[in-house]
């Protein structure tokens, strides 16, 4: 087998596997819903099931995205999206998990904020950040989007204890250079590595996207944000 054809086989296997696992996850989610509906008293304990289903799916999406980004002929599929639609979509996906875990979700975004982004990739980044926030928050998670200095800022904030000091230090020492993020021994590292790649793929004129992790959010806990250049014109004149 030539390496070219084995690559093709691998791609086909990857696509089919993902398709199949996603079908299983969808059915699993359905089962959990049914069991939960029949067991109202113990309803809350199923929140973890749904959360883990989300996490498996998030990992799958990230794996596939990383493969594609590295593959030959990759191009960014950036299209115009209304950001509030995008954020409320993600909110709707997490609604059941958040309800079961008694977490309040706040979406803060002007309804006319539109930007050209690769929705699939940026979705993976936010999904990862929310998934972390669900684990570490106390009572609230906020998805906030706004425009600042030619960048679209998408942030995920919570009212938990915030990032450990050591992690913030490591992050600031690396100065936003993804090659030094250690992916070998932690999934947090993998998530950040992915987020940074996605951010840097978004470029416009002389601006390049980046990520930030601080404890200076509006809710007092951690604040993860991805900053994507908005380009020359945010609103199009027709």
């Amino acid at each position: 087998m030539t390496s070219d054809s084995s690559k093709k086989h691998f791609e086909a296997a990857l696509a089919l596997t993902i398709h199949d696992v996603k079908n299983s996850l969808a059915l699993f989610l359905d089962r959990v819903e049914v069991v939960q509906a029949n067991d109202a008293a113990a309803g809350k304990k199923y929140g973890n099931f749904k959360y883990e289903i989300k996490r498996i799916n998030n990992n799958l999406i990230r794996l596939l995205a990383l493969y594609k980004v590295g593959a030959e002929g990759f191009t960014l599929q950036d299209e115009f999206h209304y950001i509030d639609d995008f954020l409320t979509d993600i909110g709707a996906e997490y609604a059941a998990v958040l309800q079961d875990k008694n977490i309040e979700l706040i979406v803060d975004c002007q309804d006319d904020l539109a930007c050209q982004i690769d929705k699939g990739l940026v979705y993976g980044v936010l999904d990862n950040a929310i998934s972390n926030a669900v684990r570490y928050t106390h009572t609230k998670i906020m998805l906030k989007a706004f425009e600042e200095d030619g960048f679209l800022v998408l942030s995920v904030q919570d009212d938990g204890d915030g990032y450990p000091e050591q992690m913030l230090q490591e992050n600031s020492q690396q100065g936003g250079c993804n090659t030094s993020i250690d992916v070998s021994n932690s999934t947090t590292g993998l998530g950040n590595y992915f987020s940074q790649i996605v951010a840097e793929l978004h470029q416009s004129d002389d601006k390049t996207g980046f990520i930030r992790m601080t404890n200076q959010g509006d809710l007092g806990g951690s604040c993860f944000s991805i900053h994507l250049p908005t380009g020359t014109a945010l609103h199009i004149e027709l």
């Binding site: 709707a92 059941a96 958040l98 008694n102 309040e104 979700l105 979406v107 803060d108 309804d111």
Partner: peptide, 16 residues
């Protein structure tokens, strides 16, 4: 609906 709640800068505990 839960969707109405999610749109814009409003908040709601869980979904409705």
């Amino acid at each position: 609906s839960s969707v109405d709640i999610l749109v814009g800068a409003k908040s709601q505990k869980g979904h409705a």
